[in-house]
Design a protein around this nucleic acid. Sequence first.
DNA 1: AATGAATGAGGATTCATTCAT
DNA 2: AATGAATGAATCCTCATTCAT
Lengths: 206, 206, 206, 206
Amino acid sequence: MSERTTRKRRINGEESRRRILDAAAEIAGERGYDGTTIAAVSDRCGLPASSIYWHFADKDELIAAVIERSFGSWLSAMELPGAATGGVSERLTAMAVGIAKALLESPDFLRLGLMLTLEHRPTEPSARTMFLQVRHQTREKVVEVCHELAPQLSAAAVEQLATYAIAGADGLFIAKEIGGDSVDLVALFELHAQVLVRLLAAELLA
Amino acid sequence: MSERTTRKRRINGEESRRRILDAAAEIAGERGYDGTTIAAVSDRCGLPASSIYWHFADKDELIAAVIERSFGSWLSAMELPGAATGGVSERLTAMAVGIAKALLESPDFLRLGLMLTLEHRPTEPSARTMFLQVRHQTREKVVEVCHELAPQLSAAAVEQLATYAIAGADGLFIAKEIGGDSVDLVALFELHAQVLVRLLAAELLA
Amino acid sequence: MSERTTRKRRINGEESRRRILDAAAEIAGERGYDGTTIAAVSDRCGLPASSIYWHFADKDELIAAVIERSFGSWLSAMELPGAATGGVSERLTAMAVGIAKALLESPDFLRLGLMLTLEHRPTEPSARTMFLQVRHQTREKVVEVCHELAPQLSAAAVEQLATYAIAGADGLFIAKEIGGDSVDLVALFELHAQVLVRLLAAELLA
Amino acid sequence: MSERTTRKRRINGEESRRRILDAAAEIAGERGYDGTTIAAVSDRCGLPASSIYWHFADKDELIAAVIERSFGSWLSAMELPGAATGGVSERLTAMAVGIAKALLESPDFLRLGLMLTLEHRPTEPSARTMFLQVRHQTREKVVEVCHELAPQLSAAAVEQLATYAIAGADGLFIAKEIGGDSVDLVALFELHAQVLVRLLAAELLA
DNA sequence: AATGAATGAGGATTCATTCAT
DNA sequence: AATGAATGAATCCTCATTCAT
């Protein structure tokens, strides 16, 4: 019994933390850093503002935690198609479709991240740093894949290709955010994959 | 006397309005909608907050005016290369380079615009609407040019191409924002132009 | 008319500032730095908290202004007996009585100052600095008077005497704060003056 | 087993209590009543805030306990020179030096006490009452010693002398707090003792 | 004996905005 | 055309305290 109750207390703490993060993720994904007020998070998660401060030192740490956690779920939403087989074209297309679907399912992560990225405030929020870190990791992965798929490319060319690949993804995400249902994100990502396939083969890169 | 003071006042008034817009543009470009406080604008332009309210009805109208004006200067920064001659490739490349240079010169317009775009707040700021409008106009221009350069393409294909073209521009802008000096925006826009040239010719589009 | 109204506005601003300072002085004199909340000041002066921030940058600046102003009125409460004539004993006694009466009339200044003095917080409030400054000035005056009254004393002896003279005043003020009506502050200051007279003459000093 | 754990727990309990008091004493000595937050005490002693409430009913009781305990150590720091022999001058000087040294060793007691003394809050903290009580006891001792050393003095004169003696001590303590190393507290207490010797003999007192 | 979690009240400060002049 | 002054609502965060375990 004591074991169970102990666990229950602990779980309640973790459960509260989760509820706070859920609420904060929703709000931050919609409204950005400044728009995410502690009062709004408190309202949405049902816990008083002071309880939020038991779980997180301050708003900055809360939003950084949101980024960290949502990057995790974003990653796992994307992992599956990594094992795709076939030629370069098929594999890249499968990856692109995977990314597009992950973006459609949980767009908050990237939306918040891009908002943080675009901001330049005097004291950079640690959430921004956090996002740039995970973005950097992602980029390293992309570079790796590019190098694997096109070993003949120079390091500079691979870097340029990776930048172009990610930029396309960012831009298409924004297009979807603006265009809504009139934009077929999956089709656009497939197109982007085809473009990248051509770039891997052709000699357009620096 | 009254004439002279009136004229002088009017001139001073326009000068004040300009100073306010300058300050607001800088701050909004750096910090977004929420981060742009009237107090901060007041500090940077040297006029008291109440004077800002003489020129603009409220914060919303101020930021909308910022968007409107900076779209103008953005357009004029971009107009020149429109008269480029040569083949499709040369013309598109010239346009791309022109856009890239305009982005490097005055990035605040697009940065603020994208921030506004990504936000979803209950009462949409008119600045956001304003940005989406000018963005829509721009998009119409792009569609027009595409249609002119590749008359054989279907309307749907042209739409997709335009979306992809603009998405690339947005994404590369973000890449530059993150990467700073390590990113050669002009080269990337040239690459993007080459990609678009291929897309205009090939049959990759929907 | 315009002149009058303009002045009136200005006067209203200064009047508000004065009301805020009055309220803050009362409260700070009673409750010290931490105990002086903006809300309490707001309540007592009738202006909303946000108006206090129009007149003072922050709580720290407000309390520093309290110290500065109350030092002024404290000085003027004390100035008169400076012109006393007679022998050393008479003059010192007149000064002591003057100080005692000033302390009885406006004890808040010294009470708040001593509270600030005794505190050691990580970031020293500027009110504390302000108090120590005016205290230092006062001390210089005391040294000067001692030197004038007993030119034969060494610099070190004068310093010691000044310290002892001020310490007596501080201590007697505290005795009065504790003892209330059962303590005759004027009589004690007269006694202190007599002690100082003896010390000026005798050879007890270092 | 139960006996052992009980004893161990009790010991740990006292150890915890001691750690809490140590932390609270340090902080209260530095920051006063308001500045002593439970969170700060918790941080410095390493125990969670809720544990502090197991040992003390509330903050008031905690600080009262701090006063009580530090008065004890203060007394014991002062006891030794009580047995001094010799004439009145020698005995008083020995006492004064003892007090001065005790103040130098553990100044927190008097600093906190004086802070509490100077404050006037609506609900007087019991720590303040506690300090005034022990101070009163001390004063009784002083009156006793004065009476013993100068039996010829009237009760009123002895009272005045005691007040003056204690006031000197308080004031010199404050001088030391402000002046730091530039103030020789022992020398000043010796001077004060000499003054008191003269006062015991002369006819300056009321 | 101890503690993780929670909580309402209140802390300082900033916000967009208004208004009299 | 401009501004000093004011203001209520909201901001982030800390407070002393409680409670279930």
